[in-house]
Design a protein around this nucleic acid. Structure first.
Lengths: 233, 233
DNA sequence: ATTTGCTGAATTGTTCAGCAAGTTGGCTGA
DNA sequence: TCAGCCAACTTGCTGAACAATTCAGCAAAT
């Protein structure tokens, strides 16, 4: 095994900082970022600033068309629906595969326990460990490309969160219970039921986000949470 | 509908041409591409060449680490397995969704018919319409992000093909039959069976590729092609 | 014989100044 | 009111330059 250290180029370092500022809400949706501004703020040449901006454009953190100045991406209701639909597609099949092998990732268990621990703390931020729960499911497959695809979605989810700070959150109690139920279904080899529960789980979060963004709720009726019950298959 | 023309920047045009040269096999795996070479070949400034190269690096067509010269990516057996596994994950769930709605995309039908048409031609290239068959299944969902994720995989599949020109191909007859069967299963609402057949279909192509790349075949036994029969569910 | 250190060529990372082309927003004149 | 025009700003690209890094080869030291 080769030991690896990461040497950040200036371009990467600036891109990282800009990404952080967008994700933290310091740069709001639609905000303009000219190359000259970035260059002077970080005291680098315009070419360097340009490269950083273009990197974030390919990551979909910024948007820009020819000869126009880059802006922080603005996610609308349709984007949120699409992001969550794509999450469902990928994650559902992963759950089926895990259920087939009855393989419950330890990292997922731990992430869910963490949500449970900070459940009754004064201020809790459930987003981060929640994300870890889902990504650890994906990552447990050991498929770099699948993980990479899912990562591009989670980064957009984080962007959603950043763009509606202060909106009401889902109850951590429900989240923890559903996560646990997902793991149980995997352990029981019930892939279809896990996929169905995942649809409800993600669907609820999605509709909350869509509503918070001012969109009208989707047409699909909330499914009866049949698989949440403990009735044997 | 507004008429749209796409104005390619110089950077994009060069990136497109380099990509074409890699995919056509003109640039073999591991081949070096220095910024100065690209700059002089296309008669542009080095900064422009650099941007083109970096674009292809983010697309995974080229690879490069800090201060090293970019090289055409070399896909090994593990890469091929990972690419096809990821394809399976994404495409299997899409088939289930399509089957749920019994929605058979017209474009997929057409793409498969095209494979059938050039089946007995002197020289046939089945790769392109085959790709179209699969992508049209994904695209029929109308989810930009799902399509984008799948596209990143198909471009790597094309790269595989480019890197082993002359290896034996699968029989077009079998491909057409299995594609048709997939569409039939979708039409019949048998999502699970479609997903299973897809696993076999992609698995066979994958093992052929892995073998051609000198890897040892994977451990999984070939499944009995039960769903290929016409027995009712 | 293997390691170490040096050196020079090649390559990348970044800067700077500048020009052409495109966009934006405000002003003018009908 | 509003189309058209102009000026300021911004991006796309260039060419040259310099610093930092990699790499291969070779000599010296262990």
């Amino acid at each position: 095994m080769v030991a690896r250290v990461t040497v950040l180029s200036v371009v990467d370092a600036i891109a990282d900082d800009l990404r952080r500022r967008v994700l933290s809400g310091e740069l709001g949706p639609g905000e303009a970022l000219t190359e000259a501004e970035v260059a002077s703020r970080y005291e680098v040449a315009r070419a360097t600033a340009k490269a950083s901006i273009e990197k974030l454009v390919t990551e979909q953190v910024l948007v820009r068309s020819n000869h126009k100045t880059a802006r922080v991406v603005q996610l609308g209701p349709d984007d949120v629906r699409d992001i969550y639909r794509s999450r469902e597609y990928l994650e559902a099949e992963v759950l089926r595969r895990l259920a087939r092998d009855r393989s419950v990732p330890a990292a997922s268990r731990e992430a869910n326990e963490e949500i449970g621990r900070l459940w009754q703390a004064e201020v809790y931020d459930v987003v981060d460990p929640d994300m870890r729960f889902h990504t650890s499911l994906i990552d447990s497959l050991g498929s770099p490309r699948t993980s990479r695809m899912y990562h591009s979605l989670t980064s957009e989810v984080k962007l959603c969160m950043a763009q509606l700070q202060g909106s009401q959150r889902l109850s951590p109690a429900i989240i923890v219970a559903e996560h646990q139920r997902l793991l149980d279904l995997i352990c029981a080899g019930r892939g279809d039921d896990a996929a169905t529960l995942l649809r409800e789980h993600l669907g609820r979060a999605r509709e909350l986000l869509v509503e918070a963004l001012g969109g009208t709720p989707g047409p699909e009726a909330t499914l009866a949470p049949s698989v949440l019950s403990d009735a044997p298959a």
